[in-house]
């Protein structure tokens, strides 16, 4: 019985929250609607933008600024901290482990968006309009619905290593190697290849995201254009490359951008699978370890600043794309 009263209470809180949210948004927009003619444009703009802007300013802009400042200070304590200038960055670039961490992150961000998009696009094209498209889509989408903890366990049953003559294989990949007459490999230990095996897990998850978005985009390319290209004698590959890809370019940019940023921030997979051992750590994982496991807020913040810098090229590229779109419009 306690469960049920508990349940009502919790859903009560939820509906109250939803109602309060609806009321606030409703009132703000209603007032904007009734605003006096003079200054109405501004008031309406404010009504639409300010809720998001206020939340972002408090929850992300302020922390970002704070983090950037902390990167130049020693570790935070209840007794304050000191200005240390560039010491945290000097530390970072003089630690050989951190150099590896940064190189790993670059490998991740180069490979994950590329592979996820290629697999997602290929799959979306191959299954387009086929029988059982929905089911086929769900199979590749499923990893998106699995938490990182779950993904870690799942891939353990793929990568687990046992030496020949001592035990049966538990990991499928090593069992396949054994069936092929090869020696099993400790996939997650041997650097640098272990990073690639972690990347496989991320690609496995993100391909579903790419596939779903790209599939929707492909369906938006007018069939007439493809048909016309065909009549002009283009083969399947040519019409794909010359008609479909340009038609979905906008979505491609969105997909690659989103996956790149998600990859830069990835830390759960690394943490769940190797804990950053065997030279597999990435910047986001190292930042978490430094800032929270060790309380070294200065080092952690400096690593966060490196992440900010790494995302700059992606931001700049998107700004260019947006400008072009504006010109077209």
């Amino acid at each position: 019985m306690e469960f049920w009263s508990d349940l009502f209470e919790k859903f009560g809180v939820m509906f109250l929250g939803l109602a309060a949210f609806a009321a606030v948004v409703g009132i703000v927009l209603f007032l904007a609607d009734r605003a006096p003619k003079r200054g109405r444009d501004f008031l309406q703009l404010a009504a639409f933008l300010s809720p998001a802007l206020i939340l972002l300013a408090v929850g992300l802009v302020y922390p970002a600024i704070r983090t950037t400042i902390l990167a130049f200070f020693s570790r935070q304590t209840a007794n304050g901290s000191e200005w240390v200038g560039l010491d945290n960055f000097v530390w970072m670039f003089t630690q050989p482990e951190i150099t590896i961490v940064i190189i790993n992150t670059l490998i991740w961000v180069a490979l994950v968006p590329l592979l996820s998009t290629i697999f997602g696009l290929a799959y979306a094209v191959f299954i387009d309009k086929s029988h059982g498209e929905k089911v086929l889509k769900s199979l590749v989408f499923m990893p998106m619905a699995i938490s990182f903890v779950g993904a870690g366990i799942i891939w353990r049953f793929m990568y687990e290593y046992r030496e020949v003559g001592f035990s049966e294989q538990i990991g499928l990949l090593n069992q396949i190697l054994v069936w092929l007459g090869q020696d099993p490999q400790p996939f997650l230990v041997n650097s640098p290849w272990n990073t690639f095996f972690l990347i496989v897990v991320m690609v496995w998850i993100q391909t579903g995201f790419a596939m779903v978005l790209l599939s929707a985009a492909i369906k938006g390319v007018p069939v007439e254009i493809i048909e016309a290209a065909r009549l002009d004698g283009a083969n399947a590959w040519q019409s794909f490359w010359n008609v479909t890809v340009p038609g979905i370019r906008g979505t491609l940019v969105v997909v690659v951008t989103t996956i790149s940023i998600a990859t830069l921030k990835v830390f759960d997979i690394v943490r769940a699978m190797t804990g950053g051992n065997f030279n597999t750590s990435v910047v986001a994982n190292e930042m978490y370890t430094q800032a929270f496991n060790r309380g070294e807020t200065g080092y952690g913040s400096a690593l966060a600043v490196v992440l900010f810098v790494m995302v700059l090229p992606i931001v700049l590229y998107n700004v260019r794309v947006m400008r072009k779109q504006k010109e077209i419009r």
Binding site: L60, Y62, P63, A64, L264, K265, A284, Y288, G300, N318
Partner: peptide, 27 residues
């Protein structure tokens, strides 16, 4: 809605995606 500063503000919000949420936890 056309307003001054629209484009830079949008770029800023877009860029906020990268703020690692670990860093936003404490504040």
């Amino acid at each position: 809605i056309k307003f001054r500063g629209s484009a830079p503000l949008f770029v800023l919000i877009f860029a906020l995606q990268i703020v690692p949420l670990q860093m936003a936890l404490i504040p």
